[in-house]
Every structure is written in structure tokens, then in C-alpha cells.
Design a protein around this nucleic acid. Structure first.
Lengths: 166, 166
DNA sequence: TTTACTGCAAATATTTTGCAATATC
DNA sequence: GATATTGCAAAATATTTGCAGTAAA
């Protein structure tokens, strides 16, 4: 059964509180690094890589070691705040778990991801059950091409044809 | 608009032919390595990594260099035969483009992926349209836990509790 | 014969790990 | 004070690249 909470995205504050509880319950320490990382993570609207995160933290003048970043990502995944995924590049990407409420439109040309909502789809997924499997989240990624890239490619093709004819 | 062909998975032979045409059209060479790689690729029912592929090829006693493997994966993706994706680990995974006809059930404990069919979902997706975006494929991954793992975890918890009480 | 392709080895990129110093509880 | 956590640097893993030899067209 899909967890009800998935369908009600938490506020940033609630997520911080969730992390708080997670750390307490497991006897893990609540260090400034962890909360600073979480703050920066929550500022991302879309998926991001560890490298993206590192850069925004450096810009914010809060230096954290690579090792800590990676370790904290594990915690955030385990705490059910982030989910690991990928855009098909080398680096693993992360996104907030509650992004599942959106359909991901991934342009295969420019790599950009657009998030769109579809209430019918959400309702459909919430009702869906599977044999011998308990679902908690889902991710629907649609691969294709965005209009900007489609236009650009058409233009390039026209120009290439022109050049050949001359 | 979702490409009609997506809904009619090609036979292995047809895919080889598709690769053939792709290579010819682009003036690329039809080398034994490329066809041998494609044959091994088609033997995978589910997603696989370059490393998986390398191992099965080594087992099949057909040695291909790493560089060639990676390069050929690019070709197969470009030829619209494979799609890049990820199970959330470091290595990029690939799967046949026509696997989109299935819902992916990914167990977050053991990492295994089960493919299930859902005709309603397929019909729904085929009708779906997006603003400023032309879709060609989609991937629905459901994250959760398979019954085997769920049972194993419950058992471990019971045993842990017992041990504490004693 | 031309040049795309392959394999090798080295270079990059990404992530993980061992360990000493530090900070939380 | 005990020990989980951090940062550093090195190791491990994954992927890309330069180049010389080979083979497809």
C-alpha cells in the first residue's frame, strides 16, 4: 500500500523535524554539519548531485568535507527524506521523496527535467497494488524532447540542408 | 505523442536489423564486436550494467575491450535500442527501450527489480500528452519492499527482541 | 586505400574508506 | 569521558580519452 504521507508533501520545517526524530531515535548525533546540509538540500527544487550540493554549500561559505556530504546523503535517504535516482549520467542524483507527486519530463537533448502534476495519475497510482510487493514511492519519468530543443534541431537540420544544396 | 512503436516490442531479430540500418545510415561500420555485444545485450531480460555485460561476454569467451563496450553502449542508446537508467547505485544501468511496457518494482532491500504488466496503465500513458514536450518513452519505477525481504526483516526483528528480553 | 574501429593504458570523475582529531551526548 | 562524527588523503570504482595498430568498406 502506498504510504499516505507520500501524498502530502511536508513543509521544510516538518522535514527538519523528521530528520531530527530520525537522528534521535537512532542515537545519532545532531551536528551543525547535518542540519546545514539538510538546509541546502531543501533549497533544491529539482534533483541534484553531490557535486551540485557541494558547490552551493561552498557558495554559502559553509565548508563540509566530501566524506561527510556522502555520508549525510546516506542518512537522508535512510531517513526517507531523499531518494536516489539518476538522469543517466555518471553521478547519482538525489531528490526529495515528495517529488514523487510529479511526473518527470526528461529532455534527452538538454538533460533538463520539468516536473508536471497530474491528479488523475496520482489517484491511479494510489489505488494501484502489486502482488508480493509493498510499494512506498513511485517515479514516473517520461523521456522525450522539449520544444526548445526540438525547434533548435529542426533549425540546424534546415541549415545543414541549405548548406548541402549550395 | 508517444511513439506507436514503443508499444510493439521488437523481436531480437528485428532489433538486430534496426541496429544494422542505424549503422548503415550513419556510415558506421558493422563489426563483429558490435553484433556480439548486441547479442549479449539482448539476452538480458532486465536492466544491466556495463560490468554485468562484460562478465557475460567474458563467460561467453568473446573478449571486447572496455572502451569498445562503453562506446557501443552509446551507439545502442543512440540507435534507440537501449535506454540509460539507474537503480540508484554508482554504475549506470541499461535496459531495452521496449521494457517501458512494464512497471518496474524495485525492492529497496535486495535491489532486485520485478517487471509487471498493467494494461490500464499502458493505455493511460499512451493517451497522456504534455505541454511543450514530445514524449517518446516512459519509465515507471515503484520503490518498496518485496515480500521475501519484508518477511526476513520481520524475523530478524523478532529474534532481536527475543535476544533483548533474555 | 582510406579511415573508422579496437584495444591498451593512462587520465578523469565519482564514491568509499582508514585514521587521527574533534565535538556531541 | 566515551565514542560518533568530521576532515583529510588515499583507495576503490566507474567512465572517458589519446594513440597506434587493425580491419571494414
Amino acid at each position: 500500500m502506498l504510504n499516505k504521507k507520500v501524498n502530502e508533501p511536508l513543509s521544510d520545517d516538518a522535514i527538519v523535524e523528521k530528520f531530527n526524530s530520525y537522528l534521535k531515535e537512532r542515537g545519532k548525533r545532531r551536528t551543525p554539519e547535518r542540519y546545514e546540509i539538510l538546509n541546502h538540500v531543501l533549497a533544491f527544487r529539482k534533483q541534484f548531485t553531490v557535486d551540485d550540493l557541494k558547490q552551493t554549500m561552498d557558495n554559502g561559505h559553509f565548508r563540509v568535507s566530501q566524506a561527510t556530504l556522502y555520508y549525510t546523503m546516506d542518512l537522508l535517504v535512510e531517513a526517507d527524506i531523499l531518494r536516489r535516482l539518476s538522469t543517466g549520467t555518471n553521478a547519482v542524483a538525489f531528490e526529495r521523496v515528495d517529488n514523487v507527486r510529479h511526473i518527470h519530463l526528461l529532455c534527452q537533448e538538454c538533460g533538463k527535467v520539468k516536473l508536471v502534476k497530474d491528479q488523475n495519475f496520482m489517484a491511479y497510482m494510489n489505488a494501484l497494488r502489486f502482488p508480493a510487493f509493498t510499494a512506498s514511492y513511485y517515479n514516473l519519468t517520461v523521456y522525450g524532447i522539449c520544444n526548445d530543443c526540438a525547434r533548435r534541431i529542426k533549425r540546424l537540420q534546415r541549415e545543414a540542408k541549405k548548406a548541402t544544396n549550395q
